[in-house]
């Protein structure tokens, strides 16, 4: 099979898996407990790395842009620039990449080990559909949690930017936030929340698909984990470009 055919089959199978998982979302059993447990693992569990990533990204943005802005005499716009970059791009994409690394790999490894040790077969033989019992809670948890994590990253990132601006560059504390408030529009925030919704779905679908198609023992688990993280990261970055363009058009942003 050539690479184009394989790629098409992968896209088809991943889409079908997500569709199967989400089709019976309101059917019994609803697996609410599993979903809440996954939301805890994915959402609360990723808080620390998301906050660290956000804080230092905001900080470094200020660090790098303040001197340039000052050269043009526009240093009072630092807050606006940092907030816009974070809310529109860096918050959603960096959160998605961090979550891919932490959660996508875990999902793929866990499901892969279950395939290899025949636990998935056992589950099916005991009358449970693994697409609903295992995939659905993970997809829902990621779709719900990633936007929340992104908002956290945005807020902490702006705080990080403020900290650097006030401590290293001696900016007046109120100036940074007032430029943030004046610059950021509702559409920026809206767009910044649509993106992680889509990313969450993509990361979960790719990680679950790679995990469930694992074959070839423990080596296979390693391989599918790597594939899951690499594929999901690339998919996130490519999708981000097209989503950004689509949002520009849909939300009527200045181009």
């Amino acid at each position: 099979m050539n690479i184009a055919t394989r790629l098409l089959i992968e896209i088809q199978e991943t889409t079908l898996l997500a569709a199967r998982a989400l089709r019976g979302i309101f059917k019994r059993p609803t697996y609410i407990n599993e979903t809440i447990a996954q939301m805890d693992v994915i959402g609360v569990g990723s808080l620390t790395i998301i906050m660290l990533t956000g804080f230092f990204t905001g900080g470094v943005l200020t660090l790098q842009t303040y001197p340039t802005l000052k050269y043009y005499g526009a240093q009072d716009q630092t807050g606006y620039l940092v907030a816009l970059s974070l809310v529109r791009e860096l918050g959603p994409v960096l959160s998605a990449l961090m979550v891919t690394g932490r959660v996508g790999s875990a999902i793929s490894a866990e499901l892969g080990s279950m395939v290899v040790s025949q636990q998935i077969d056992a589950m099916r033989s005991l009358g449970t559909d693994p697409d609903r019992k295992l995939v659905m809670p993970r997809v829902i948890a990621l779709v719900l949690m990633l936007p929340l994590l992104t908002v956290v990253a945005d807020v902490v990132g702006i705080c990080g930017g403020w900290t650097v601006a006030t401590t290293l560059y001696g900016m007046a504390p109120g100036m940074f936030f007032s430029s943030v408030r004046q610059g950021i529009t509702a559409n920026d925030i809206f767009g910044g929340i649509i993106k992680p919704l889509v990313f969450g779905l993509l990361i979960a679908a790719v990680a679950c698909r790679q995990g469930l198609k694992t074959e070839g023992g423990t080596v296979g688990v390693g391989r599918s984990t790597t594939t899951a993280v690499v594929t999901a990261s690339i998919v996130v970055i490519i999708t981000d470009f097209f989503l950004a363009k689509a949002l520009q058009v849909l939300l009527d942003m200045p181009t």
Partner: peptide, 23 residues
């Protein structure tokens, strides 16, 4: 289909090579 098989599987007990317990 998978859904129809679920009913058939209710009457079948399967014992796997290594037990295949849920860890």
């Amino acid at each position: 289909t998978e859904v129809e098989m679920m009913k058939v599987r209710k009457n079948i007990g399967m014992i796997f090579q290594e037990g295949a317990l849920f860890d």
